[in-house]
Design a protein around this nucleic acid. Structure first.
Length: 457
DNA sequence: TCTGGGGTCCTAGGACCC
DNA sequence: TCTGGGGTCCTAGGACCC
């Protein structure tokens, strides 16, 4: 299932450093019970729940647009025809023409997700959302209140089904990675418990190595090349052999396959900033070569990034531009800004510079992306900002806040940067033709003045 | 059937300093 | 005359996940 809504909400990756500290920690800890809940075909099931006429039909969310789309989520009926997340929409249509394609309604899924996450707290004080449709619960000790792990798992599934009318799969195991694997293997609408790592290893053994969370296509291929195709083979391979091919990561691959990885929930005090980078990327409907057109698209990305950065109360110092050419070759180019910023103009100017430096002009561009990292909290400035007084920077910040508020209230298209001449560096804003009417209100004149526009319709 | 968009983390190599 | 080696920072690329 694709999609997620927060950098913090993901499974900690399997890095040697983390793994090592996990193992160190494990020696001092009593055996634990971790529960992993994974919503089945979450987006598709939410849509079906809200529109019962879709029941019994193959449903896909995403991939409905006419261009270059992929399926984001498909219900299990559609999956019987071979549809799955990440599949190009053209292929999905061909495999199953009767599929109902629905647009992605991100806000709705985030809303439902938040409700589910909070409802999970009745089963454990330690609920860790990993993505919009997954969470990990430390139920060590809690299971006794429910009469055992099995009973707790069943009650949890029943709660989700009754309160939210949605199916989910639950995995329970001695560690987090194995619990997640249990949920993967139990899908759909299942409950799978591994009481010991040995039990888990036995279940993993016949599976192809790529089924393991953390082993993707590249590592899978590398393992296949040395004759390891199943997780059972991987678990039985000597560490020195794996070490010689995969370096320090090698032994950890074996431990994962043996169900021995003791990934732990991070403690609250080691939680870093919620987000490490904020970015957007866009694949164009058709490949672009015109530099002015590319610049215009870049401005759009910079505005979106700047707004999210400001909304989160951040500033960032490292700007990364991504260019994907028509042949799918993808390049990134970074620049370290002189100071952390959330300023739209600064992002636009610097991203243009980056593009000028690295663009292979004449080559067809398929995608542009822009991301800001090196985030730090914006220093708080007490009191309201003065829209009309203050220095230029403060005024600009006030202007950008006003624009954010406008867009938040009336939508993305309510106002756009003027494209004076041929995408000259416009500093003025004009209302879009399809602008949502503003009805009076005290702030109207202030907006008109602050935005430097002639009128608001 | 050509391949989305949001992220995190790791690593290799070069620059630079001592 | 040009050579060691360790440490750190920065950048680009890649693997992986949902």
């Amino acid at each position: 299932m694709a999609w997620q809504h927060g950098a913090e909400r993901r499974l900690a990756p399997l890095t040697p450093t983390r793994l090592e500290s996990s193992f160190r920690l494990r020696k001092d800890l009593p055996p634990r019970k971790l529960l992993h809940i994974d919503m089945d075909a979450f987006f598709a099931e939410v849509e079906i729940r809200d529109n019962p006429s879709l029941r019994g039909r193959p449903v896909a969310v995403g991939g409905g647009g006419g261009y270059r789309g992929v399926v984001t989520s498909a219900n299990y009926l559609a999956r019987q025809y071979g549809l799955k997340a990440g599949m190009p929409s053209g292929q999905a249509r061909k495999l199953c023409p009767q599929t109902v394609f629905l647009p992605v309604n991100g806000r709705k899924y985030v809303f439902v997700s938040a409700q589910i996450m909070s409802a999970l707290e009745q089963f454990s004080p330690e609920v860790r959302p990993l993505s919009v449709d997954e969470a990990s619960l430390d139920i060590t000790g809690c299971e006794r209140l429910f009469g055992g792990a099995l009973e707790l798992g069943l009650k949890l599934k029943e709660m989700v089904r009754h309160r939210f009318d949605l199916p989910c799969t639950v995995g329970i195991a001695p560690n987090r990675l194995t619990a997640k694997m249990a949920a993967n293997l139990g899908k759909p609408d299942g409950l799978l418990i591994f009481s010991t790592t040995q039990e888990a290893a036995a279940a993993f053994a016949p599976l192809p190595v790529e089924e393991m969370v953390g082993i993707g296509a590249a590592t899978g291929k590398a393992l296949n090349r040395i004759g390891i195709t199943t997780l059972g083979q991987l678990a039985g391979t000597a560490d020195f052999v794996l070490k010689s091919h995969f370096g320090i990561l090698g032994p950890y691959l074996r431990q994962m396959a043996a169900g021995e990885w003791a990934g732990r929930m991070r403690q609250d005090d080691e939680r870093g900033p919620v987000e490490k980078s904020i970015g957007h990327q866009r694949t164009f409907e058709v490949n672009l070569t015109d530099t002015n057109e590319l610049r215009a698209r870049l401005v759009g990305l910079a505005e979106m990034v700047a707004r999210r950065v400001r909304k989160g109360g951040w500033k960032g110092q490292v700007l990364t531009l991504t260019v994907r050419y028509g042949d799918f070759h993808t390049f990134t180019h970074q620049s370290h800004l002189p100071a952390p910023t959330a300023d739209e103009e600064a992002l636009i100017d610097n991203s243009w510079k980056l593009l000028e430096e690295c663009l292979d002009s004449g080559r067809e561009v398929r995608l542009l992306g822009l991301s800001l990292s090196g985030l730090s909290a914006k220093s708080s400035r007490g009191g309201q900002l003065d829209l009309f007084g203050g220095n230029r920077l403060v005024r600009r910040e006030a202007l950008e806040n006003a624009l954010d508020a406008l867009r938040e209230r009336f939508g993305e298209k309510v106002i756009a940067r003027a494209q004076g001449g041929r995408y000259a560096r416009a500093r003025r804003y004009v209302p879009c033709q399809d602008m949502v009417p503003l009805r009076g209100g005290a702030g109207k004149e202030a907006f008109v003045q602050a935005l430097g526009i002639s009128k608001i319709c």
